[in-house]
């Protein structure tokens, strides 16, 4: 069952194609990996799906409804959430307040008491209880990334898009992040993850899409991707 689907999605910046005629789909409750060299267009694709920027052409449908062209807040209310490659935590709020923002505004008609409850639930789910009153600027990078994930989870998403949540983490932290991602999927959430940490991608993902210069050059299971000559050429050519 497909929950998200894109066809012929295009986006150019000043004549340069960042996403070039990409077709993709995401199945319910799978973990889809999105990989590719720097500048391949991965983050741009997230921006297009979440409505942060508008596609030049192409259609994106989510749960059977066209979402391309919709305002970001509506896409979020429909259950699509994301994190940012460059952490975008609210600097003047505590960790808990950051997560609370997702809980208060992420779903339509959430009352305050429910949002507070949800926030505490999420904080313990991702293991941030001990840092709840800290400023996100004062905690380790791995924890900052976790705040981003928690804030997105607080919007009660059905699809969660993770943009390099493991970048800059040490091997132990990568392991912990992998555990968290499995746990999130276990709770019924569909996940799309952009990642350069191959170990994590290969062991977590059901399926992988490879982008290069904005184009989809390969798609398949982790085994298929690791044996693909096209993919190996692209990565060795880097």
């Amino acid at each position: 069952m497909q929950i998200l689907n894109g066809s012929g999605v295009n986006k150019a910046f000043g004549g340069r194609k960042a996403v070039d005629n990409v077709d993709f789909h995401v199945d319910e409750n799978e973990i889809l990996g999105l990989i590719g060299p720097n500048g391949a267009g991965k983050t741009t694709l997230f921006n297009l799906i979440s409505g942060a920027i508008k596609a030049d052409s192409g259609t994106i449908t989510y749960k059977g409804r066209v979402i391309s062209g919709m305002k970001p807040y509506r896409i979020c209310h429909m259950g699509l959430a994301r994190t940012f490659q460059k952490a975008k935590n609210f600097p003047d709020m505590t960790v808990r307040e950051n997560v609370l923002m997702g809980a208060v505004f992420g779903k339509k008609g959430t009352d305050n008491a429910a949002a507070e409850r949800k926030t505490d639930e999420i904080l313990s789910f991702v293991g941030l209880e001990d840092f709840r009153d800290k400023s996100p600027g004062d905690i380790a990078l791995a924890l900052q990334k976790r705040v981003e994930v928690a804030r997105a989870l607080a919007t009660s998403p059905d699809v969660l898009m993770l943009d390099e949540v493991m970048a800059g983490l040490n091997p132990t932290e990568v392991g912990e992040a992998m555990e968290l991602i499995s746990k999130i999927r276990g709770s019924g959430v569909t996940i799309i993850m952009i990642e350069h940490v191959m170990k994590a991608i290969m062991s977590l993902c059901d399926r992988i899409i490879v982008l290069h210069h904005g184009q989809k050059i390969e798609e398949g299971t982790p085994e298929h991707i690791s044996n693909s000559k096209t993919v190996i050429d692209v990565y060795l050519g880097e």
């Binding site: 942060a52 305002k71 807040y73 994301r82 609210f90 709020m93 923002m101 208060v104 505004f105």
Partner: peptide, 24 residues
């Protein structure tokens, strides 16, 4: 207030706020 929270979120990071469901 709820509106106050939205106002603070938008002033601290408008792009993050709208992707969290705030009507910027």
């Amino acid at each position: 207030s709820r509106l106050g929270k939205a106002i603070r979120a938008v002033s601290q990071d408008p792009s993050a706020a709208r992707l969290l469901g705030v009507r910027r």
